[in-house]
Design a protein around this nucleic acid. Structure first.
Length: 211
DNA sequence: AAGGAGTACAACCGCCGAGAA
DNA sequence: ATTCTCGGCGGTTGTACTCCT
Protein backbone atom coordinates (compact mmCIF):
# COMPACT_ATOMS: atom_id res chain seq x y z
CA UNK A 1 0.00 0.00 0.00
CA UNK A 2 0.96 3.62 -0.19
CA UNK A 3 4.04 4.78 -1.98
CA UNK A 4 6.07 1.85 -3.06
CA UNK A 5 8.69 3.22 -5.41
CA UNK A 6 11.78 4.46 -3.65
CA UNK A 7 13.72 7.28 -5.26
CA UNK A 8 16.30 9.92 -4.47
CA UNK A 9 15.49 13.61 -4.46
CA UNK A 10 17.55 15.43 -7.06
CA UNK A 11 17.98 18.52 -4.89
CA UNK A 12 19.13 17.08 -1.59
CA UNK A 13 20.01 13.49 -2.47
CA UNK A 14 17.70 12.23 0.24
CA UNK A 15 15.77 9.02 -0.22
CA UNK A 16 12.00 9.23 -0.58
CA UNK A 17 9.15 6.80 -0.91
CA UNK A 18 8.58 3.48 0.77
CA UNK A 19 10.83 2.44 3.61
CA UNK A 20 13.00 -0.67 3.43
CA UNK A 21 13.15 -3.13 6.32
CA UNK A 22 16.85 -2.34 6.73
CA UNK A 23 16.05 1.35 7.21
CA UNK A 24 13.46 0.48 9.84
CA UNK A 25 16.06 -1.58 11.65
CA UNK A 26 18.49 1.34 11.68
CA UNK A 27 15.89 3.64 13.21
CA UNK A 28 14.78 1.06 15.78
CA UNK A 29 18.35 0.38 16.82
CA UNK A 30 19.17 4.07 17.15
CA UNK A 31 16.06 4.81 19.19
CA UNK A 32 16.75 1.82 21.42
CA UNK A 33 20.19 3.22 22.15
CA UNK A 34 19.55 6.97 22.25
CA UNK A 35 15.81 7.35 22.77
CA UNK A 36 13.33 9.27 20.64
CA UNK A 37 13.82 12.80 19.30
CA UNK A 38 16.80 14.34 17.52
CA UNK A 39 15.66 12.86 14.24
CA UNK A 40 18.02 14.94 12.16
CA UNK A 41 20.92 13.76 14.30
CA UNK A 42 19.75 10.20 13.81
CA UNK A 43 19.91 10.62 10.03
CA UNK A 44 23.36 12.14 10.10
CA UNK A 45 24.89 9.71 12.56
CA UNK A 46 23.47 6.56 10.99
CA UNK A 47 23.99 7.65 7.40
CA UNK A 48 20.32 7.10 6.73
CA UNK A 49 19.43 8.99 3.57
CA UNK A 50 16.20 10.31 5.05
CA UNK A 51 15.33 13.74 6.36
CA UNK A 52 14.60 14.04 10.06
CA UNK A 53 10.94 14.69 9.46
CA UNK A 54 10.60 11.53 7.45
CA UNK A 55 12.31 9.49 10.17
CA UNK A 56 10.10 10.96 12.84
CA UNK A 57 6.98 10.17 10.85
CA UNK A 58 8.11 6.63 10.22
CA UNK A 59 8.74 6.09 13.91
CA UNK A 60 5.51 7.65 15.10
CA UNK A 61 3.25 6.02 12.56
CA UNK A 62 4.80 2.64 12.10
CA UNK A 63 7.78 1.68 14.23
CA UNK A 64 6.66 2.73 17.70
CA UNK A 65 6.34 -0.43 19.83
CA UNK A 66 3.04 0.64 21.42
CA UNK A 67 1.17 0.93 18.14
CA UNK A 68 -1.89 -1.27 17.81
CA UNK A 69 -2.02 -2.73 14.33
CA UNK A 70 -5.41 -3.82 13.10
CA UNK A 71 -8.86 -2.52 12.42
CA UNK A 72 -10.42 0.28 14.40
CA UNK A 73 -12.97 -1.19 16.79
CA UNK A 74 -16.53 0.09 17.15
CA UNK A 75 -15.68 1.59 20.54
CA UNK A 76 -12.71 3.39 19.07
CA UNK A 77 -14.81 4.62 16.17
CA UNK A 78 -17.41 6.04 18.53
CA UNK A 79 -14.69 7.71 20.57
CA UNK A 80 -13.15 9.22 17.44
CA UNK A 81 -16.51 10.66 16.37
CA UNK A 82 -17.10 12.16 19.80
CA UNK A 83 -13.61 13.56 20.08
CA UNK A 84 -13.82 15.00 16.58
CA UNK A 85 -17.04 16.77 17.55
CA UNK A 86 -15.22 18.28 20.50
CA UNK A 87 -11.83 19.00 19.03
CA UNK A 88 -12.28 19.27 15.28
CA UNK A 89 -9.39 18.16 13.08
CA UNK A 90 -6.89 18.13 15.93
CA UNK A 91 -5.75 14.64 15.07
CA UNK A 92 -2.77 14.56 17.41
CA UNK A 93 -5.00 15.45 20.37
CA UNK A 94 -7.57 12.86 19.36
CA UNK A 95 -4.85 10.25 18.92
CA UNK A 96 -3.48 11.13 22.34
CA UNK A 97 -6.70 9.86 23.83
CA UNK A 98 -6.88 6.63 21.90
CA UNK A 99 -4.04 4.40 23.09
CA UNK A 100 -2.06 2.67 20.37
CA UNK A 101 -3.50 4.72 17.51
CA UNK A 102 -1.61 7.39 15.60
CA UNK A 103 -2.83 10.76 14.42
CA UNK A 104 -2.13 9.74 10.84
CA UNK A 105 -4.16 6.55 11.21
CA UNK A 106 -7.10 8.38 12.74
CA UNK A 107 -6.92 11.12 10.13
CA UNK A 108 -6.88 8.52 7.36
CA UNK A 109 -9.73 6.60 8.94
CA UNK A 110 -11.76 9.76 9.29
CA UNK A 111 -11.13 10.94 5.73
CA UNK A 112 -11.59 7.61 4.03
CA UNK A 113 -14.29 5.96 6.11
CA UNK A 114 -16.01 8.00 8.79
CA UNK A 115 -16.53 11.16 6.78
CA UNK A 116 -18.41 9.25 4.11
CA UNK A 117 -20.25 7.15 6.65
CA UNK A 118 -21.49 10.22 8.54
CA UNK A 119 -22.41 11.98 5.30
CA UNK A 120 -24.48 8.98 4.26
CA UNK A 121 -26.19 8.86 7.66
CA UNK A 122 -26.94 12.58 7.46
CA UNK A 123 -28.24 12.16 3.95
CA UNK A 124 -30.54 9.38 5.09
CA UNK A 125 -31.83 11.52 7.94
CA UNK A 126 -32.39 14.50 5.64
CA UNK A 127 -34.26 12.24 3.24
CA UNK A 128 -36.42 11.04 6.11
CA UNK A 129 -37.17 14.64 7.10
CA UNK A 130 -38.09 15.52 3.53
CA UNK A 131 -40.42 12.52 3.31
CA UNK A 132 -42.13 13.60 6.50
CA UNK A 133 -42.49 17.17 5.24
CA UNK A 134 -43.96 15.97 1.96
CA UNK A 135 -46.41 13.74 3.81
CA UNK A 136 -47.46 16.61 6.00
CA UNK A 137 -47.88 19.08 3.15
CA UNK A 138 -49.77 16.65 0.98
CA UNK A 139 -51.99 15.55 3.81
CA UNK A 140 -55.40 17.17 4.32
CA UNK A 141 -54.93 16.83 8.04
CA UNK A 142 -53.11 19.84 9.42
CA UNK A 143 -50.97 18.79 12.29
CA UNK A 144 -47.79 19.88 13.94
CA UNK A 145 -44.66 17.84 13.68
CA UNK A 146 -44.25 15.25 16.38
CA UNK A 147 -42.16 15.90 19.44
CA UNK A 148 -39.66 13.41 18.10
CA UNK A 149 -39.28 15.43 14.92
CA UNK A 150 -38.75 18.61 16.87
CA UNK A 151 -36.19 16.91 19.03
CA UNK A 152 -34.53 15.60 15.91
CA UNK A 153 -34.21 19.06 14.36
CA UNK A 154 -33.06 20.53 17.64
CA UNK A 155 -30.39 17.89 17.86
CA UNK A 156 -29.08 18.82 14.44
CA UNK A 157 -28.94 22.45 15.47
CA UNK A 158 -27.25 21.63 18.74
CA UNK A 159 -24.71 19.50 16.95
CA UNK A 160 -23.79 22.51 14.86
CA UNK A 161 -23.47 24.63 17.98
CA UNK A 162 -21.27 21.95 19.46
CA UNK A 163 -18.94 22.03 16.50
CA UNK A 164 -18.75 25.78 16.86
CA UNK A 165 -17.81 25.55 20.51
CA UNK A 166 -15.22 22.92 19.67
CA UNK A 167 -13.81 25.18 17.02
CA UNK A 168 -13.46 27.93 19.60
CA UNK A 169 -11.70 25.54 21.90
CA UNK A 170 -9.29 24.59 19.16
CA UNK A 171 -8.26 28.20 18.88
CA UNK A 172 -6.61 27.96 22.27
CA UNK A 173 -3.03 29.10 22.03
CA UNK A 174 -1.26 28.05 25.14
CA UNK A 175 2.10 26.67 26.09
CA UNK A 176 1.52 23.13 25.01
CA UNK A 177 -2.01 22.04 24.19
CA UNK A 178 -1.51 18.62 25.69
CA UNK A 179 -0.65 20.00 29.08
CA UNK A 180 -3.58 22.30 28.95
CA UNK A 181 -5.89 19.50 27.92
CA UNK A 182 -4.73 17.41 30.84
CA UNK A 183 -5.84 20.17 33.12
CA UNK A 184 -9.16 19.58 34.84
CA UNK A 185 -9.89 23.30 34.61
CA UNK A 186 -9.82 23.05 30.85
CA UNK A 187 -12.35 20.25 30.90
CA UNK A 188 -14.54 22.10 33.37
CA UNK A 189 -14.58 25.14 31.10
CA UNK A 190 -15.23 22.91 28.18
CA UNK A 191 -18.13 21.23 29.93
CA UNK A 192 -19.59 24.63 30.79
CA UNK A 193 -19.36 25.61 27.13
CA UNK A 194 -21.12 22.42 26.23
CA UNK A 195 -23.96 22.63 28.74
CA UNK A 196 -26.36 23.71 26.02
CA UNK A 197 -25.42 21.02 23.56
CA UNK A 198 -26.81 17.56 23.06
CA UNK A 199 -23.55 15.93 24.08
CA UNK A 200 -23.29 14.51 27.55
CA UNK A 201 -19.79 15.70 28.16
CA UNK A 202 -19.54 14.49 31.73
CA UNK A 203 -20.07 10.97 30.49
CA UNK A 204 -17.55 11.62 27.76
CA UNK A 205 -14.99 12.95 30.19
CA UNK A 206 -15.23 9.81 32.31
CA UNK A 207 -14.66 7.74 29.23
CA UNK A 208 -11.43 9.41 28.21
CA UNK A 209 -8.49 7.09 28.49
CA UNK A 210 -5.41 8.17 30.34
CA UNK A 211 -2.67 9.65 28.16
C1' DA B 1 -11.13 -12.61 -17.09
C1' DA B 2 -10.50 -7.75 -17.65
C1' DG B 3 -10.53 -3.25 -16.41
C1' DG B 4 -12.49 0.74 -14.27
C1' DA B 5 -14.00 2.76 -9.85
C1' DG B 6 -13.61 3.01 -5.17
C1' DT B 7 -10.99 2.36 -0.82
C1' DA B 8 -7.18 2.21 2.50
C1' DC B 9 -3.16 3.91 4.09
C1' DA B 10 1.89 5.16 3.88
C1' DA B 11 4.35 9.02 2.97
C1' DC B 12 5.20 13.82 1.42
C1' DC B 13 4.46 18.88 1.69
C1' DG B 14 4.00 23.35 3.58
C1' DC B 15 3.36 26.03 7.47
C1' DC B 16 4.14 27.32 12.20
C1' DG B 17 6.27 27.85 16.77
C1' DA B 18 10.09 27.13 19.94
C1' DG B 19 14.64 27.20 21.06
C1' DA B 20 19.49 27.63 19.84
C1' DA B 21 23.16 30.23 17.73
C1' DA C 1 17.11 41.39 17.92
C1' DT C 2 17.55 38.47 14.17
C1' DT C 3 18.29 34.28 11.74
C1' DC C 4 18.48 29.42 11.48
C1' DT C 5 17.26 24.74 12.55
C1' DC C 6 14.28 21.36 14.03
C1' DG C 7 10.14 19.16 15.55
C1' DG C 8 5.22 18.96 15.27
C1' DC C 9 0.90 19.29 12.94
C1' DG C 10 -2.85 19.08 9.47
C1' DG C 11 -3.71 18.66 4.62
C1' DT C 12 -2.86 16.27 0.53
C1' DT C 13 -1.06 12.94 -2.74
C1' DG C 14 0.19 8.52 -4.77
C1' DT C 15 -0.26 3.75 -5.16
C1' DA C 16 -1.53 -1.08 -3.92
C1' DC C 17 -5.47 -3.54 -3.09
C1' DT C 18 -10.45 -4.78 -3.47
C1' DC C 19 -14.86 -4.69 -5.38
C1' DC C 20 -18.08 -4.36 -9.03
C1' DT C 21 -19.75 -4.58 -13.66
Amino acid sequence: MGRSSTYYDKNDGLKKGAWAASEDQIVKAYVKKHGVGKWGKLSRETGLKRCGKSVRLRWLNYLRPDIIKGNITEDEEELIIRLHKLLGNRWSLIAGRIPGRTDNEIKNYWNSTLKRKLQQENHLEVSKDEEIKEDLSSSAVVSAATDEDEDHHRQHHDADVGIGVAAEATNYKGTGDDEYLRDDLWWNNFIMDFNDTQLDVSEFQNGIPEI
